[in-house]
Amino acid sequence: MRTQPAQFAQPASPYATQQPLDVLVTGPVFFDLVFTGLPSGPVPGTEVWASGMGSAPGGIANLAVAASRLGLSTGLAGAFGDDAYADWLWTVLGKQEGVDLSASRRYRHWHTSVTVSLAMENDRAMISHGHPDPEPASALVSGARYAHAVVAELSAEGEPWWRDLAARGTLIFADVGWDPEGSWDPAWLDLLEGCHAFTPNEVEAMAYTRADSAVEAARALAERVPLAVVTRGADGAVAVDSASGEEVEVDPLQVEALDATGAGDVFGAALITGTINGWDLLRRLRFAVLCSALAVRQFGGSLAAPGWGDIADWWEATVAAARTGDRAARETAARYDFLDDALPGHPLARVRRADATMARLADVSTGEGPAPTVRSSM
């Protein structure tokens, strides 16, 4: 059964009459085009053919889809354009994936940002194009339903809008984007004031803290936030709880990785799920590693995120292998035995994967009417 920690008690707010969300995410939304099965990276003057491809919502939508598939009531406060990509994104997110878009807005004469992701060598390289959102996150969040947890991306532009929410009891899970200039200014970490957790990847964490290892980086970051989590890709993850002093390192699960696009966002969604369920730090981290491992076995970023049905299938196969005497499976089953209690009560329906091209809107439409009228961009 799911339990809610005391800190999630809803304070008085303008949204007290509305059912609160489990999590609200905010940030840029992208249309992702993912290529897999590349024999090598492209170089000038050549053409490389990929054996697979998929289209999917990207950017902050990765985390929104992953959270919704794990059963969290999820809202997205984001900017959408007035083009065909935006029509498709709005339909897939709101009607196929069940993400609450009431705090999102559409803008005229503003096009959807696009990312091409190239899955290679158990990682990915990306090419993106887009423009800053027409309005800051604070303008979108101001009209959102109350949420127990909020995902915010650190940005040097504007005031840290999440601090008012944190003061009212919302847990802020902070992330940070890639620094294309390579300066990795430690002053950015001052923005973490008021945040509950910070979840950078290993490269980002070590660059910002000037640490020599992920563990050292997590310890340094734990001086700024109650929970510091550093993801390490194929090497697992490490976390430090500054309140208790607990340090946890979790090994990766060995899977055949097809596409790492969005794996960090799936990790973050699973971490929030475990937090809302009141799990201890070790279980939260193991669950996050599991969900991201299941995601990289599929291609398509957000639409590779597992649902509870995928988790149940993996658990059943792992337990069956353990009963045959497989030593590795026995050890894995022992680490994840908490799934016996976590799985009951969750719908185990199949989730939709990325298509090679944009799905027809009719394939995901539920007949609930058109998207909201677009408004002029600023």
Rank of each mutant, 00 (worst) to 15 (best):
Q4N: 13
A6E: 10
F8I: 03
A9V: 15
A9G: 10
Q10D: 10
A12G: 10
S13H: 08
S13G: 12
Q18D: 12
D22N: 11
D22L: 00
V25H: 08
V25A: 13
F30G: 01
F30R: 00
L33T: 12
V34L: 06
F35S: 05
P39Q: 00
S40M: 11
S40D: 08
S40Q: 12
V43P: 05
V43R: 09
V43H: 04
G45A: 09
V48Y: 03
A50F: 04
A50E: 04
A50M: 06
G52L: 06
G52M: 05
G54P: 03
G54A: 15
N62T: 03
L63T: 13
L63K: 09
A66W: 03
A67Y: 05
G71W: 00
G71H: 00
L72I: 04
S73K: 09
G75T: 05
G78K: 00
A79C: 15
A86P: 03
L89H: 05
W90A: 04
Q96W: 08
G98W: 10
A103S: 13
A103P: 05
A103G: 11
Y107D: 10
W110C: 07
W110S: 05
H111E: 13
S113K: 04
V114S: 07
V114T: 10
S117F: 01
L118P: 01
A119G: 07
D123E: 13
S128P: 03
S128D: 07
H129P: 08
P136W: 00
S138Y: 02
G143S: 07
A147S: 13
H148T: 15
L154C: 02
S155N: 12
S155E: 06
P160H: 01
W161V: 00
R163Y: 02
R163V: 13
A167S: 13
R168G: 15
L171W: 10
I172D: 03
I172S: 04
V176W: 01
E181K: 13
G182M: 08
S183G: 11
W184N: 08
D185M: 06
A187T: 07
W188N: 11
L192E: 00
E193G: 12
E193P: 02
E193K: 09
C195W: 00
E202C: 11
Y208H: 04
A220Q: 12
R224A: 10
V225L: 09
L227S: 01
V229E: 01
V230T: 02
T231M: 01
D235S: 14
G236D: 04
S242F: 04
S242Y: 04
S244V: 07
E247R: 03
D251S: 14
A257E: 04
A257G: 07
T261N: 03
T261Y: 01
G262N: 03
F267Y: 09
G274Y: 00
G278F: 08
R284L: 11
L285P: 01
L294P: 00
V296M: 06
S302N: 08
G307C: 03
W308Q: 12
D313I: 14
W315I: 07
E316S: 15
R327D: 12
A329D: 07
R330Y: 05
R330L: 15
F338M: 07
D340S: 14
L343Q: 11
P344S: 13
L348K: 15
R350K: 15
A354H: 00
M358F: 12
D363K: 12
V364Q: 05
E368N: 14
G369M: 11
P370S: 08
A371G: 12
V374Q: 12
R375S: 15
S376C: 11
